[in-house]
Design a protein around this nucleic acid. Structure first.
Length: 365
DNA sequence: AAATCGGGGTA
DNA sequence: TACCCAGATTT
């Protein structure tokens, strides 16, 4: 008996998404967001601001809508146009981004703004293929900007859409291994109102077809959904095997001078928290590699009466970190390159959250 | 294909 | 706790 060379999730076996029904739902239930043009305004011909859409899309990468809110307001207030952002100092962009995470986004954001101004006269390219060439803009973001701003009929696939499609088609493998299928499945349903359709699918995933709750009773596309016919649609998407998070540990050195200033320095241009600001510290030892329960003794950068302030915990994407915090009052600079920063002004520095935790620990005294 | 790259909200 | 969030880039 010959093999039937057809994938189990071949789209020819799956009824498509009812775009008209989804758009009708979106017309009445769209989330109101600062960077978004409502479907009613869009129907009247109001065009989205590509700078706002692009900025929001970069901020929203792996980041929730509530978290982005304040940062989006701060950026658009300080830099109202892409020309303003391009003209800004990169360090100021990093300072505004501090706390939002994934700092390569901030570096690429500034580079992209300059490219749009220098190479495209300040106007974003209007197709996903062209947008893909800009720094920080990948498969999702290029499609999102092209669809939302210019109604290019491309499939926009983010984490929400992955989940909706996985449930809709009862996908039997992790979406990570079925990206082409998900994209082609969405593509066949993209209507003329491509931007509203993209946002409707994401809104559906954010509100009705949520990660731990599927409210199928009020879902506008439940009719053709395979997942809702199963015992529990939230069994989809199936998750890949998880692996445990390794641990690292190190020391952080906080030096305060007689004027109440803290010694800060800049991290290297590459790697974790690249180009951001930090306090001096030790290497972050991988606990498995030092074959011991205890990390090496601290090698203080300068002599003095260092005080142990306890430790802080911080969890990154791929490891968990424990830092022992040490404090010294001294007017001597502990490292070669760096600067003194007033304690009252630390919020304006480009300090990632892990170092804000370190500093907060020393202020408990 | 797998690893790297942050931080916070949710159940 | 574990999972997930309008992913991109590097290895």
């Amino acid at each position: 008996m010959p093999e039937i060379n057809r994938h189990k999730n071949d789209k020819s076996n799956k009824p498509p998404i009812d775009a008209a029904a989804l758009l009708a739902w979106y017309d009445n239930n769209a989330r109101a967001l600062p960077w978004r043009v409502s479907p009613a305004d869009r129907a009247r011909g109001v065009a989205p601001n590509p700078y706002f859409v692009w900025l929001s899309e970069i901020m929203l990468q792996q980041t929730t809508v509530p978290t982005v809110g304040k940062y989006f307001a701060a950026f658009t207030s300080r830099w109202p146009t892409v020309q303003d952002l391009a003209a800004a100092d990169r360090d100021d962009v990093l300072k505004e981004w501090a706390g939002l995470g994934y700092y390569a986004r901030a570096r690429n954001l500034h580079a992209c703004a300059n490219m749009v101004v220098d190479e495209f006269g300040g106007d974003f390219p209007q197709t996903a293929a062209e947008l893909m060439n800009l720094p920080g803009i990948g498969p999702y973001t290029s499609a999102a900007i092209a669809a939302i701003c210019y109604d290019q009929q491309v499939a926009v696939v983010d984490g929400n859409v992955d989940r909706v499609v996985a449930r809709f088609t009862a996908l039997d493998q992790p979406v990570r291994d079925a990206k082409p299928f998900v994209k082609s499945f969405v593509q066949q349903s993209v209507p003329k109102r491509a931007g509203d359709f993209a946002q409707s699918l994401m809104d559906l995933g954010a509100t009705i077809c949520a990660p731990k709750r599927a409210n199928c009773l009020i879902c506008p596309i439940a009719e053709n959904c395979q997942g809702t016919k199963t015992a529990d649609p939230t069994n989809f998407p199936v998750m890949p095997a998880k692996k445990q998070k390794p641990k690292r540990a190190g020391h952080a050195f906080v030096v305060e001078n007689a004027k109440g200033e803290i010694w800060l320095q800049q991290r290297p241009e590459k790697g974790l928290l690249a180009a951001m600001t930090e306090v001096p510290g030790s290497e972050w030892h991988k606990l498995a590699e030092i074959k011991s329960d205890t990390i090496p003794e601290p090698e203080f950068p300068i002599r003095g009466e260092w005080r142990n302030c306890g430790s802080i915990e911080h969890v990154f994407t791929h490891f968990a970190l424990t830092l022992t915090v040490w404090k010294l009052n001294s007017d001597e600079a502990p490292t070669q390159k760096g600067w003194w920063s007033k304690k009252q002004n630390l919020d304006a520095e480009a300090l990632p959250t892990v170092f804000k935790k370190v500093l907060a620990k020393t202020f408990e005294e």
